[in-house]
Design a protein around this nucleic acid. Structure first.
Lengths: 196, 196
DNA sequence: TCTGGAAGTTACAGACCGGTAACACCCTAG
DNA sequence: CTAGGGTGTTACCGGTCTGTAACTTCCAGA
């Protein structure tokens, strides 16, 4: 697990990677900074030299998550250069793979569930990052020639988000098993009414 | 707020109601038993005379939530006796109303995000209650004459679940605003392919 | 080889957590 | 009026939490 990260890299990077992993697995309030630093092979003072508080560490973890997830768009473009519809189908497959591989939900959604203070710094970046993700999917749908691109993108987003929650509550054998069928059906349906 | 509950009822009921309210607003790990009992106008000893632990209190809160939410099915039946399709549309309207009224997500989903221990007692009841909810919606879809009742019910479930998450992350002005249009479109679409 | 900054170590502060013990109180059913 | 159970009060236990202070060690670059 995180031991691979511990081996040799800068303490800041190790802390960030370990915190991402532990926050994801055990929740934010379920992990203390002591546990993070110990798993990262360092100590609390070093953490507080690089992050001014646990809250700032949380924010950095969320940003790092989004950056890592955002890389998939480049992969899609590399796999299907210029073919936006194929990239949309790739998104569906990627989403389904995430559903199968990971029983914990979306880190941003989980963080929003845990951090209820309306002015918590993480809330701002969660909103910002989620809106950016939405914009990307809308653009992909539009470039794929879908008529009501926003509506399809939002529908696919909500379906995926709901499926992630479902996996976390009833497991991988629940309604989320139908995600691909739902998504593909929607794309077909929206392609039928395309205005392009 | 919870003050209305404090006035006159048994301590156990006050504790349960107050805990439900506070868990919902601030999350489970964001509320201590001291805060609950104080808001309920009682004290910690009384809480532990009625609930053997905080975990058991959590479980009872989840059950109470589900019971309260489950009452809506009777309301639908009373409003549209025998007309299952009308009741399905009523479910959509009810879901949309919840999205507008409540910025916090589903308590069960939030609890699942917070309580990561695989053998936490709440996890069992969450799964149990979620599966019961799913069964109800499937039955309603089937009785409404929908061909692929399970698939429609699951799609609507995931859409609603996703919309609740979306409200919590990007707010009520995000993709969740399209929920009714999505859901109604799906019902129309599934009615078109109805089998009997 | 020397030096300066990054990192490790230990100890601690102050708050909060879930949970319990011992005891005083009050109100109602008999 | 009396007995007893439900309730309130206070104090406490051991543990954990975020965050800090003071000091030592290490290592790379000049």
């Amino acid at each position: 697990m995180a031991d691979g990260v511990v081996e040799r890299s800068r303490p800041r990077d190790r802390i960030l990677e370990t915190a991402r992993d532990m926050f994801h697995k055990h929740g934010i309030k379920g992990v203390g900074v002591d546990a993070i630093t110990e798993a990262a092979g360092t100590n609390k003072m070093t953490l507080y030299r690089h992050f001014e508080s646990k809250d700032e560490l949380i924010v950095e973890c969320l940003r790092a998550n989004a950056a890592k997830a955002g890389a998939m768009w480049d992969v899609f473009e590399a796999e299907f250069p210029g073919d936006k519809l194929a990239q949309l189908h790739a998104w569906v497959r990627k989403a389904a793979a995430v559903l199968k591989a990971d029983g914990r939900g979306c880190d941003m959604a989980n963080a929003a569930a845990e951090l209820t203070e309306p002015d918590h710094p993480a809330r701002l970046v969660i909103k910002e990052l989620k809106e950016a993700q939405r914009e990307r999917l809308v653009t992909l749908c539009r470039d794929a020639g879908i008529g009501q691109a926003e509506l399809l993108a939002d529908t696919l987003s909500l379906l995926f988000e709901g499926a992630r929650v479902s996996v976390q509550t009833v497991g991988t054998e629940g309604p989320s098993t139908q995600f691909v069928r739902m998504a593909e059906g929607l794309i077909v349906s929206f392609r039928g009414t395309a205005a392009g």
